[in-house]
Amino acid sequence: MLRLISVAVLLVTWWIASLLVGGAKLPPPPAVLAAIVTEAKSGALFLNLGATLARVTLSFALAMTLGTAIGYWMGRVRLADRLGDPWLILLLNLPALVVIVLAYIWAGLTEVAAIAAIAINKLPTAVVTLREGTRALDPALDEMATVFAFPRGKAFRHVVLPQLAPYVAAAARSGLALIWKIVLVAELLGRSNGVGFEIGVAFQLFDIPLLLAYSLSFAAVVLVIETALVQPFEVRVSRWRSRAA
């Protein structure tokens, strides 16, 4: 209920602001809604949202898998940590734009370049988070697994993974937020579809209703995914914590 009121207040504010500055700069909500409907009817909206979502999914999966593996390895093996740390600091502080531009220059304006560039931007934060998680693993439980001769796979699944789960969730959360931001830039600079590309087109044509139509649709998708997938996952992995006596 409170959420609905909050959304309504936002809409009213938007409407009043558009009356004050004029519809040319800030179109009122019905104009944007009309643009959304037009794009949806032609199918372009879903095509572009789908293309962006596919890129997000692939680069997110890639960055999380690699990031978890590398982070775990660096947390466990001292040598790997010392060798990998300078690379990590470099990657962490490299601006997203540099990575994207270089990827397009080196690999051409291709899908692979786009997805790799987005993944590389997210990778170092996942590595750092998982490395911290690995360092925080409880040695007492490792010893228990050793004494009771847990096979490696079993120890990883039942002893290590549950301890890493909150860190994986944190990395997924912050990583997804990062990817939502970067994917549009990558599309703007080098793809011919996707939300980022359409926003670029709308910017060049000064078509503000179209620009807002794509921005808001994209924001809605992000919101749905965050509440329907990410938050339930976080609750699930930490459910044993809440059942304290």
């Binding site: 007492a140 439980l141 010893e143 228990m144 004494v147 009771f148 001769a149 002893v159 549950p162 914590r241």
Partner: peptide, 12 residues
């Protein structure tokens, strides 16, 4: 080996 550690060391 079956071992009972000083703290129980159960998987929470």
């Amino acid at each position: 080996i079956g071992m009972v550690f000083q703290e129980p060391r159960l998987l929470p």
